[in-house]
């Protein structure tokens, strides 16, 4: 019996050594350790043994089983490892081959800038509101204190639908709508399409975009206006930007100013684009809301004051992206849009 067990062990270990794959290993396991396997057969014959022999043989049989199982598991894991390694090797790819691109669309640069501007002000506590593209002469001119004879009212400057209805020439009528609807205090910005009687050329378009801001509260001063514009310019173009408030004239603000900012090309050093001045001219117009405008909207200028500002979104988009022809903004060439 002892020899039989020894033989089984030697044969089994030998077979394991000879085996070359997992299937053969499995066959070996069945052959020796299976229900009808050789070791099992031997153990079944244990009943015939004497009381003394039984534990000895039993122990030996267990040792043989452990040895075979141990070896089987060892070789099995070797095979698995080898197989994995072979697979990894076989699966090698050319990682420099192009990726499978998914198409992502592009924002229009103008509308992207418009939204960025709105968001800057929204983060400063301004509500973003909108107004119609077609407006009344009252909201677009009269209520904004525009003189009755002002050339901007001419048919050669403004598109009219009727004598009293026009395509708004600026976003300022939104101010009138807001002041008539809301009770102060409030802070709003409004951006959108505006229209002027300009033929299309490199820098002009009969349709363009403005952003308008309005703050009305008690004790609002020109110092608040300066601070708000400064913050906005720094947020938009960077902390090193400087502003310059030049007195100017708009019918709807008093005092009025035009704002120059550090030249966006040279950041104020002076270059050919700013004619050596270091300033980018007339980026923004602003001022304290004219008392006539407040009165026209039912707000008492003795109690409330406010400021308003307006800027050209198209110009900022063009400066920001280095676009030199406004026509590109409205042509919608995909090769242009795909750059943004």
């Amino acid at each position: 019996m002892k020899e039989k067990l020894q033989n089984i062990m030697e044969n089994a270990l030998d077979a394991i050594k000879q085996s070359s794959n997992l299937e053969e290993l499995d066959n070996i396991r069945v052959k020796y350790l299976g229900k009808k396997g050789e070791l099992t057969q031997v153990l079944r014959g244990m009943g015939k043994l004497s009381k003394e022999e039984r534990p000895v043989i039993g122990q030996l049989a267990n040792e043989v089983r452990e040895a075979i199982e141990g070896q089987l598991n060892q070789v099995k894991s070797d095979f698995k490892e080898a197989k994995k390694k072979a697979r990894l090797k076989a699966e090698k790819i050319d990682i420099s081959m192009p990726g499978k691109t998914k198409v992502i669309g592009h924002r229009h640069p103008l509308l992207k800038v418009k939204e960025e501007l709105e968001n800057v002000f929204m983060n400063m506590g301004f509500d973003v509101v909108e107004g119609p593209e077609i407006e009344t002469v009252h909201n677009n001119f009269d209520a904004l204190n525009s003189p009755e004879n002002h050339p901007s009212r001419d048919l050669s400057d403004t598109f009219y639908i009727t004598d009293n209805i026009l395509l708004r020439t600026h976003t300022s009528p939104v101010q009138i709508r807001v002041m008539k609807q809301r009770k102060p205090p409030f802070k709003i910005v409004s951006a959108g399409r505006t229209f002027r009687f300009d033929d299309v050329d490199d820098t002009h378009s009969p349709m363009f975009h403005q952003l308008e801001g309005l703050v009305i509260d008690k004790n609002i001063t020109i110092a608040n206006l300066k601070h708000t514009i400064d913050m906005f310019i720094k947020e938009l173009f960077g902390e090193d930007m400087k502003t310059r408030f030049r007195p100017h004239h708009f019918p709807f603000t008093e005092p009025s100013a035009e704002v120059d900012v550090s030249c966006l090309k040279c950041r104020g050093e002076g270059c050919t684009s700013c004619h050596g001045t270091g300033w980018d001219m007339e980026l923004l117009g602003c001022g304290m809301v004219h008392p006539n405008v407040l009165r026209n909207c039912g707000i008492d200028p003795e109690e409330y004051s406010g400021f308003a500002f307006g800027l050209g979104v198209d110009r900022i988009a063009m400066v920001k992206y280095g676009i030199n022809n406004i026509r590109l903004l409205f042509e919608n060439d995909m090769r242009f849009l795909n750059q943004f």
Partner: peptide
Amino acid sequence: FDKIPPVPLVGTLTKGEK
């Protein structure tokens, strides 16, 4: 105007909305 120092807006803090 350049001699007027900027002063932040004070008063009710508002949250901008769309």
